[in-house]
């Protein structure tokens, strides 16, 4: 179906200098301001950031789901060798839900409340492939089993309101898997769920990616979740990726002061009785953001040099960060 089949070494997804801006009365809000990403087939990338960092908008830009006043003003997105930004809406639609699937934070927003689960799943299969209703139903049943839903035949006949939040999210993930996508973008998929359900879903999603070779971008604000799941981490702050690298490397040897601050502010047993490390201040308001490193007002290492936007520094093959004064002590 796809003309340029991937070779193993080529990245599945390549995002270069992506800029998504929202044009408002207060001026352009640079929600995403020069993001570079690469994703190999089967790789799991954790895209971490706090609210307003642009992590979700990055995901939506890849999916072509940016509505006015938002606009992708620069950069390019290549999926499997094809330029997504040059595609017509019709082509994009045949790609979305087929080669690229998405899982949103709130499963009750993903599912249509007035249609049964089977109706929605069969429709999703038949929108992309000419198969009989029976074959589509069979495939729907298979993916429900794959995501660990007990008694799938009964669940297929349910309406979304008859299911718990965890079950609904699993069905949303099952729908994403229906057409054997090559890339899944999951936007805070477990944030609204209990830890026990979160554990189940992470377990299932990871084994699915390993089995099927599907690449995954897991967008989240929770570093602890990503530490146990992702191969690589990209940390976003105010529309830019400030640090990327292998998960263990980033967690144990953060280079950017923001990454380090984030890691140290996670509460746990080892921090009990002590004060948590806190990043002073709050995330900057995007319309007021000027030149320079966006983190400098909250950074304890900032100097006058930080008024100039830092370039990307390479460290080894896989580490990249944007900071003039990286954490050199590293080990914490």
């Amino acid at each position: 179906m796809t003309p340029g089949q991937t070779t193993t070494s080529a990245p599945l997804l390549r995002v270069q200098n992506l800029k998504t801006h929202f044009h408002t009365r207060q001026g352009a809000v640079k929600a995403v301001d020069g993001v570079d990403l690469e994703l190999a087939p089967g790789e799991i990338l954790g895209l971490v950031g706090e609210s307003g960092s642009g992590k979700s908008i990055t995901g939506f830009s890849i999916l072509g789901l940016i509505d006015p006043p938002g606009r992708i003003v620069d950069g390019n997105i290549e999926f499997d060798g094809r330029d997504l930004l040059a595609m017509k809406e019709r082509e994009l639609r045949s790609l979305r839900g087929n080669d690229i699937a998405v899982v949103f934070q709130d499963p009750s927003m993903t599912l249509n409340p007035v249609l049964r689960v089977d109706t929605q799943m069969i429709e999703a299969v038949r929108a992309h492939e000419k198969v009989s209703i029976e074959a589509a139903r069979q495939r729907a049943r298979d993916v429900l089993v794959k995501v660990g839903i007990p008694s799938p035949d009964e669940r297929l006949r349910c309406y979304p309101f008859e299911l718990s939040g965890g079950m609904r999210q699993r069905i949303a993930i099952a729908i994403a898997l229906l057409n054997r996508p090559r890339l899944i973008i999951a936007d805070e998929p477990t944030t609204a769920l209990d830890v026990s359900i979160q554990g189940q879903i992470i377990h299932e999603v990871r084994s699915l990616c390993r089995e099927t070779g599907t690449a995954l971008i897991w967008v989240t604000h929770d570093l602890a979740v990503i530490a146990g799941l992702a191969d690589r981490i990209a940390v976003m702050y105010a529309g830019r990726i400030v640090e990327t690298g292998e998960t263990d490397e980033v967690i144990h040897r953060p280079m950017h002061p923001y990454t380090r601050g984030l890691i140290e502010s996670v509460p746990s047993g080892s921090t009990r009785g002590a004060r948590l490390h806190q990043i002073e201040g709050m995330t900057p308001s995007l319309p007021e953001l000027g030149e320079g490193c966006a983190f400098r007002d909250r950074c304890h290492r900032a100097t006058d040099q930080c008024r100039v936007t830092p370039d990307v520094t390479l460290l080894g093959d896989t580490r990249e960060f944007r900071c003039w004064h990286p954490e050199t002590g590293g080990e914490q």
Partner: peptide, 24 residues
């Protein structure tokens, strides 16, 4: 015991969750 096993931890690094079966 099962609940504490589910807590995602930074230090633990990548690991396999043994999920609690079933739902509330």
């Amino acid at each position: 015991r099962l609940l504490i096993d589910q807590v995602p931890r930074l230090e633990a690094g990548k690991r396999d969750y043994t999920p609690i079966k079933g739902e509330l």
